[in-house]
């Protein structure tokens, strides 16, 4: 758990945009793993199992009623500030905030792929296994998400 606690919390935070929600989801992930560790047969990597549970819980929470009112730009700003040294290579705070706004404006299905691949460096195959999606679907969603982000950040590149 010590190995994965930051990774799981970070994925939940990037998906949900709220530290409290992210903490609840991350705790639930580890409790579920603790309860059903006996059923884990080792056919998949433990990390994939953790990512699968995390992704499912995040997507469920995002689809919960009343969630739309909670997610807003204020939340996104908190996401940016959630990290002690967020985006060390980012040019400016404005770009940093714009990036997080753009991420959270993505469709949830695309956002989870970007978060897993570009923010946390998972392989395509691992993402496909965690989300139970065909590899081509993962590739396609990731490409669409990246293109959308490029469009949203257009003004920073001119």
């Amino acid at each position: 758990m010590l190995t994965y606690q930051h990774r799981i919390f970070s994925i939940a935070l990037r998906m949900l945009g709220d530290r409290g929600d992210a903490q609840e989801v991350a705790q639930e992930v580890f409790l579920r793993v603790h309860r059903s560790i006996g059923r884990f047969r080792g056919e998949a990597k433990l990390s994939t199992w953790l990512y699968a549970i995390t992704s499912r819980l995040c997507l469920n929470r995002l689809k919960a009623p009343g969630r739309a009112q909670r997610a807003g730009e204020g939340t996104l700003a908190r996401v940016a500030n959630g990290h002690p040294n967020p985006g060390a290579t980012l040019e400016a705070g404005e770009m940093q905030a714009a990036l997080h706004r753009a991420i959270s404006a993505l469709d949830e299905e695309r956002r989870i792929v970007v978060v897993l691949r570009d923010l946390h460096g998972l392989a395509y195959e691992e993402i496909a296994a965690a989300l139970e999606l065909p590899l081509n679907t993962v590739r396609s969603r990731l490409h669409r998400a990246r293109m959308e982000l490029k469009e949203r950040l257009e003004r920073f590149w001119s």
Binding site: I8, A26, Q27, L31, G82, H83, D118
Partner: peptide, 21 residues
């Protein structure tokens, strides 16, 4: 754009998170 995404670091869980879990 993708490089910018890659530059975003991993968030850290709050202190005492593992103990609480």
């Amino acid at each position: 754009t993708v490089s910018l995404l890659h530059s975003v670091g991993e968030a850290r869980a709050p202190a005492g998170f593992a103990t609480r879990v």
